[in-house]
């Protein structure tokens, strides 16, 4: 991943990480246009800051951090979120609920409603095989906080996706 001169090979970094970064950006932003912009901006910023990193093994986490910061910067300048409160959701699983069926779009709708710090945690947890410790480093919070956020975010997603499924079923049966 480094060139013979010891510098990062950015073409290799693109090949290795663009897909994961794009998916991450899409799940964070919920928009394909924003996801593309964020991915491009991430590699651009990484090239500008190339001297910050020497260990190619740390490049993935570094790129994810750059992407999230770029996303947060946009989020702060946009300030148009309608987010749910997770206060009502406990950390405990209370009952067995039927497994909801949902697609990528429905999942995205549910993710969009999560506050960013919960959304980021749950995205990283599910598709990029980041450990609790990795996620804690990405978010800059203790591991305990990550665990708590993950548990609550999952509870929310499960509830939200279940209700989406059932209302979809209701609409389908109403239509029949």
């Amino acid at each position: 991943m480094t060139s013979p001169g010891g510098r990062l090979d950015f073409h290799q970094l693109v090949d290795d990480h663009y897909a994961a970064l794009y998916r991450y950006a899409y799940r964070l932003s919920g928009s394909t246009a924003d996801a593309e912009d964020l991915t491009q901006e991430t590699f651009y910023q990484a090239q500008c800051k190339a001297d910050q990193i020497r260990d190619p093994g740390a490049a993935k986490a570094w790129l994810f951090r750059i992407l999230r910061n770029a996303y947060l910067y946009r989020l702060r300048s946009e300030k148009q979120q309608r987010l749910v409160s997770l206060d009502g959701l406990g950390d405990m699983v209370t009952a067995i609920e039927p497994l909801p069926t949902f697609d990528s779009g429905q999942l995205q709708e549910a993710l969009n409603e999560l506050p960013e710090e919960f959304r980021t945690a749950v995205i990283l947890y599910y598709f990029e095989e980041f450990s609790y410790r990795d996620i804690a480093e990405q978010l800059g919070v203790p591991i305990g906080t990550v665990m708590s956020r993950l548990a609550r975010a999952k509870r929310f997603l499960r509830k939200r996706l279940s209700s989406a499924t059932s209302s979809h079923d209701r609409r389908t049966s109403d239509g029949l």
Partner: peptide, 29 residues
């Protein structure tokens, strides 16, 4: 549920031209 969530989470179509554009951007820089 976890398996389902992980699977759907990754179900994001990646624009075909994205890697090409990224390589061009890297080369341009």
């Amino acid at each position: 549920f976890d398996r389902q969530l992980a699977q759907v989470m990754q179900d994001v179509a990646i624009p075909k031209s994205l890697p090409h554009r990224l390589h061009e951007q890297v080369a341009r820089y």
